[in-house]
Computed example of a mutant assay.
Amino acid sequence: MDPRIREHAQIIADHSVDLQAGDNVIIDAHPVAEDLVVALHEVIGDVGANPLTTSQRTGTRNTRAYLRASDGEFETPEHELALIENTDVYIAIRATDNATQTSDVSPEVSSAHRQAHSPILEERLSTRWCLTQFPAPANAQLAEMSTEGYENFVWDAVNKDWDEQYELQENMVEILDPADEVRIVSGDTTDVTMSVEGNPTLNDHGEHNLPGGEVFTAPVADSVDGEVLFDMPLYHQGREITDVSLEFDGGEVVSHSAAKNEDLLTEVLNTDDGARRLGELGIGMNRDIDQFTYNMLFDEKMGDTVHMAVGRAYDDTIGEDNEGNDSAVHVDMIVDMSEDSRIEVDGEVVQRDGTFRFEDGFEE
């Protein structure tokens, strides 16, 4: 086994989920991630915890078959909820043999299925959890990379000094955490403002998401105004959405468009009332993620990007005097900030063309 896989497993156990003796652990993984699952079982055995492997959320053939055969009416599966309620640690591993496996499932069915599983998502988020990636060949193909090149890319981004990354990112936390207003400008297609007053800024250094590499917070729900062109594509439900344009007024999306699969974007925004509001503002800071790979777990962490998510806000990013945005969805979308772009915090430019104020090369 590649020693980097064992290192990956050890980082998950020690850094991301703080694995303890007696923990009940679910590993949710596609079969192509077997090597990482095996390495995790070795670590779990060393610690004296209790593993169970499933493949509930990985876009496998059985998921597609079930959704296509269903009538689109779903109830929360109580047995699955009970399983999560008795779980201490939840580890989700992204990997697939076909990145577009569920592309022919209707958006309406996928949305209904997601809504029925919202209580399970809430319960998972109350555990010690980690979402990570195994470099499977299908994911390498989606990233337009060789398998070996993608393996190097993934493990360079994952197997790193996370204490050092934390210190870098804390520079941005110190700027954003006490702030009131943030403005994002990119070319003549993006100019959006939002308040983050009273909402904590979190330092993602590889705990829940591995790789980490961002700082993020939640906008005050009704404060978002302006237009955003998300000029990097995303994959959602196995389909690509490109050039998403959103216009906000009073915090709500009042118009939208996309160059490709606009119907899927519309379905996301129509999921529920909260799906038309922003639940997250994130700023990428992982310099080992240096190319776009059609994988949001990595792409949103690139150092010259900003991402915003429509839908659910994470509880930890909501101040006690503020109200969080609630939704069954959380869909991240990315703005390239590498050229003709800036981030302003309370009127001061803190990043220009992808370079932060505290990095070498920043220009006033």
Results as ranks from 00 to 15, higher is better:
residue 335 V to A: 06
residue 151 E to K: 13
residue 65 A to F: 08
residue 84 I to M: 06
residue 302 M to P: 05
residue 1 M to A: 12
residue 102 T to R: 02
residue 229 L to V: 06
residue 351 Q to G: 01
residue 196 V to K: 12
residue 220 V to T: 10
residue 292 F to H: 14
residue 4 R to D: 10
residue 77 P to W: 02
residue 232 M to W: 14
residue 201 T to L: 08
residue 205 H to C: 08
residue 49 A to W: 01
residue 215 V to S: 05
residue 3 P to Y: 05
residue 270 N to E: 15
residue 325 N to V: 07
residue 60 T to E: 12
residue 241 I to T: 13
residue 251 G to F: 01
residue 343 I to Y: 01
residue 184 I to R: 07
residue 287 R to G: 05
residue 146 S to M: 11
residue 26 I to H: 02
residue 254 V to F: 08
residue 126 S to R: 13
residue 233 P to Q: 14
residue 88 D to H: 10
residue 212 G to R: 05
residue 168 L to N: 11
residue 312 R to Y: 10
residue 280 E to F: 10
residue 13 A to S: 08
residue 258 A to M: 07
residue 163 D to L: 15
residue 256 H to Q: 15
residue 289 I to L: 04
residue 293 T to C: 09
residue 255 S to V: 08
residue 226 G to K: 02
residue 319 G to F: 07
residue 164 E to D: 15
residue 32 V to T: 12
residue 153 F to H: 09
residue 261 N to D: 06
residue 112 A to L: 10
residue 87 T to N: 12
residue 274 G to R: 04
residue 119 P to G: 04
residue 61 R to M: 10
residue 304 D to A: 14
residue 23 D to I: 04
residue 245 S to F: 05
residue 259 A to P: 01
residue 249 D to I: 08
residue 75 E to F: 12
residue 154 V to C: 06
residue 50 N to R: 11
residue 126 S to N: 15
residue 347 G to V: 05
residue 115 Q to A: 12
residue 357 R to C: 12
residue 287 R to H: 12
residue 361 G to Q: 07
residue 231 D to L: 05
residue 21 A to F: 01
residue 350 V to M: 11
residue 40 L to K: 09
residue 154 V to A: 01
residue 63 T to Q: 12
residue 234 L to Q: 15
residue 355 T to V: 14
